[in-house]
Amino acid sequence: MIGIRVHFDEPAGRRACRYCGGALPPGKRADALDCSPDHRTRYHRERVAAEAADARRDKSEADIRAELAERRP
């Protein structure tokens, strides 16, 4: 997993949003990581999708076929 180093001692306007990389608005909390609720949601959705893709890559082709055969009625 990729870690993000955040310096909370910097004002919000100088820190970057972890999704888009743009500056955080000056009114954000000291520990804010995202510039908007939408970017927070998008970051988490992409992270979950990336983890699911990694899990699919780890399965062998035979495992995937067996799983699909179990699902069929």
Rank of each mutant, 00 (worst) to 15 (best):
A16I: 03
L33I: 02
A52P: 03
P11V: 06
R72Q: 12
R57H: 12
R14Q: 15
A52W: 09
I2M: 06
G13I: 06
A52E: 15
P73E: 14
Y43R: 09
D58L: 12
L68K: 15
E61F: 04
C35K: 00
S36A: 05
R15I: 06
I4T: 13
A52F: 06
I64L: 14
G21V: 05
D58R: 15
P37M: 08
R71D: 12
R18Q: 15
R65S: 12
M1R: 05
R42V: 01
G21H: 11
A30M: 06
C17R: 01
P37A: 13
E61K: 07
R42L: 14
D54E: 12
G21F: 02
Y19W: 15
V48M: 10
G3H: 14
R5V: 14
C17N: 03
R45I: 02
T41M: 13
K59H: 10
P26M: 07
A32C: 03
C20Y: 00
E70G: 08
I64G: 04
H39W: 04
E67T: 10
R45F: 05
C17D: 04
D63H: 07
V48K: 07
C20F: 00
A16L: 08
I2H: 08
F8A: 09
A66M: 03
R71C: 02
R40Q: 07
T41S: 13
G22P: 00
I4K: 10
L24G: 08
I4A: 14
E67S: 04
P37S: 07
I4W: 11
R56G: 01
A53P: 00
E70R: 15
L68R: 15
A23M: 04
A52N: 13
L33D: 03
R71E: 12
S60L: 06
H7P: 08
L33F: 05
A50T: 05
A30H: 07
Y43K: 00
A62I: 12
K59L: 15
D9G: 10
L24M: 03
A32T: 05
R57T: 01
A12N: 01
A23P: 07
I2G: 08
